[in-house]
Simulated assay, not measured.
Amino acid sequence: MVNLDGLRVAVTGAGRASGRLLATAFAEHGAQVFVSARDEVAARRTTDSIRQRGRGRGEAFVCDLTSPDSVRAFAAALTDRTDHLDVLVNNGAGYLHGVDLGDVEDDHIIATIGGTATGTVLLTKHLLALLRASTRPDIVNMISACGEVGHHRSEAHPAFYAAKHAQAGFAEIMSHRLRVEGIRVISLFPPDFVQHGPRVASNNLTAQSVVDCVLFAVSQPRDCFIREFRFE
């Protein structure tokens, strides 16, 4: 069984769906989870769920990844509450539908690319000191198969593809540059997946399977640098 007792973990976009599942899974394995979401009520619902399950701990924060001020405020709040951070999960990203480039308004394109790409870069930047203070730091990036070169199978908007390619490029260079410090940068490239369903070969990938990959990666010994998970 995965034992993450006492680890301090920050998860963005943890107010719903797979982000909430990630946060509660870390807590169930003993972690103290800093739960962030654009909506404070949604973040508190996640921490309520963590409390009801009764093992790890959760604390709710507001973090709108499309707003640099909000990102900096979240990082400052964590710095006030802890002297180190063991795991940062860059999960927050707004999915954008639309096959045609003109299917969405400009402000939605700006928010999608800004929140996913710029938001990930800024939050990692402002939490890097806390990660460097950990004895076992990991950065986990929930990217998407849309960030893979040559992937064309999603119905996501081209701006979402652009955002995920930017996030993937950032993750790759940070993996290379931070490895010498013992900071593991782990990226996942799941295809469009379902929140619930039977976990069998003939069905779509489930959120729980993606979460299990994350837990597996961060629980490995420190000589094990798993850089990427790619899925069929």
Rank of each mutant, 00 (worst) to 15 (best):
I139H: 08
P137R: 04
I50G: 03
C224F: 08
V104K: 13
G98A: 10
N90T: 08
R55C: 12
P137L: 10
R177H: 09
F229T: 07
D212I: 11
L128I: 12
H29A: 15
R45Y: 03
M1V: 09
V71S: 02
S175F: 01
R8C: 01
G15C: 04
R153N: 08
R16A: 13
D192V: 08
G119V: 09
A156E: 05
E40C: 00
A163L: 01
T112C: 12
R153Q: 10
A129C: 10
S202A: 14
G98I: 06
E28K: 15
A77H: 02
G56R: 05
G114I: 11
L22N: 03
V33M: 03
G115I: 11
T47A: 13
V121I: 12
D212T: 11
N203L: 01
L21I: 09
G56F: 08
F225R: 08
A163Y: 01
H152F: 10
D223S: 13
Q208M: 09
A162S: 15
D86Y: 11
A42P: 00
M1N: 08
L22I: 15
E28P: 00
R184E: 05
H84T: 07
D69I: 00
R153G: 11
G98L: 03
A129T: 15
T47M: 13
F231Y: 14
D80E: 15
V2I: 15
S175A: 14
E228H: 11
V211M: 09
A162L: 11
D48V: 05
S154C: 10
N3F: 10
V200S: 12
R132E: 12
F231T: 11
T124N: 09
H157I: 03
A42M: 06
V180C: 06
R55F: 14
G98P: 04
T112N: 09
L128P: 04
L128C: 06
T118D: 00
G6C: 12
D106T: 13
L127P: 00
D80L: 08
V99A: 14
H84F: 09
V121H: 06
V185D: 01
V214T: 09
V218C: 03
R57L: 14
T79L: 05
A129G: 14
T206P: 02
F189D: 02
L127A: 01
G119Q: 05
R44H: 07
V33H: 05
D138H: 14
G30W: 01
F34E: 02
A201G: 00
Q167R: 10
P137E: 13
K164N: 00
A217C: 14
V41Y: 01
V99G: 09
D103S: 15
V99R: 15
Y95L: 12
R57D: 12
T24I: 12
T116I: 02
A14V: 13
S202C: 03
F74W: 02
L128Q: 06
R53C: 13
G102M: 07
Q52T: 10
R55L: 15
C213H: 14
S70F: 04
H157G: 06
T46G: 08
I139Y: 05
A23Y: 07
L122K: 03
L131N: 07
T12L: 06
G147R: 04
Y95N: 08
I110T: 08
A37G: 09
E172F: 06
R153T: 03
P68F: 01
F231C: 09
S154L: 02
T12F: 06
A133F: 02
E105F: 00
E172A: 12
